[in-house]
Amino acid sequence: MINTEYFTLGHISLLLGFILIIVGFWGILTQKNIVKIILAFSIADAGINILIVSLGYVIGKTAPIIDGSVVQKAGIDVSDSIVDPVPQALVLTSIVIGFGVTALMLAYAMKLFTAKKTLHINKFNDLKW
C-alpha cells in the first residue's frame, strides 16, 4: 500500500532533486567522454537547485510576487500568503555560477580536444602514476 502522505508538492520536488543529483553523480563517475561528464555536472547542478527551492516551499502558499493572487498594496503584510523568497534568490545566484562553471569546463574541453584530438578521459593520463 502506497502512503499518499508523500504525494505533496514539497515531497515530489525534493525527490526529483535527489534523483537528479544521483543521476549526475553516476554520470560523473562512469562516463568516459568529457562532454558527457560536463553534462552530468549540469544535471547534478539542476538537482541541487531544485532541492534548495523545494526546501523553501510552504504548504498551500503562492509565489513571492505581490500581485492579484496576493494583495496589491504597498506596506501590507504578506507573510501568511507566500513561500520563502530567500532560497529562490540564492538559487538565482547558484544558477549563474553554475552557468559560469559549465562554460569554463566546455572551454577547457575544447582546449583538450585541440591538444590530443580526442575527448576520451582515459587518454589524458599525463599526470597519472
Binding site: 505533496t8 508538492l9 514539497g10 515531497h11 523553501g56 516551499y57 510552504v58 504548504i59 513571492p64 510576487i65 505581490i66 500581485d67 496589491q72 498594496k73 504597498a74 506596506g75 501590507i76 503584510d77 504578506v78 507573510s79 501568511d80 507566500i82 520563502d84 523568497p85 530567500v86 529562490q88 534568490a89 538565482l92
Partner: peptide, 27 residues
C-alpha cells in the same frame, strides 16, 4: 516535513519588503 510558515529573515522580508523597497517581486 513541508513547512507551514515563514521563519526568521523571510518573515521580515515578507512584512517589510513591499514598504521598504517597493518592488512587487520580493525575490
Amino acid at each position: 516535513e513541508a513547512r507551514t510558515g515563514l521563519t526568521g529573515i523571510a518573515q521580515y522580508y515578507a512584512q517589510n519588503g513591499a514598504k521598504e523597497v517597493g518592488a512587487a517581486n520580493l525575490v
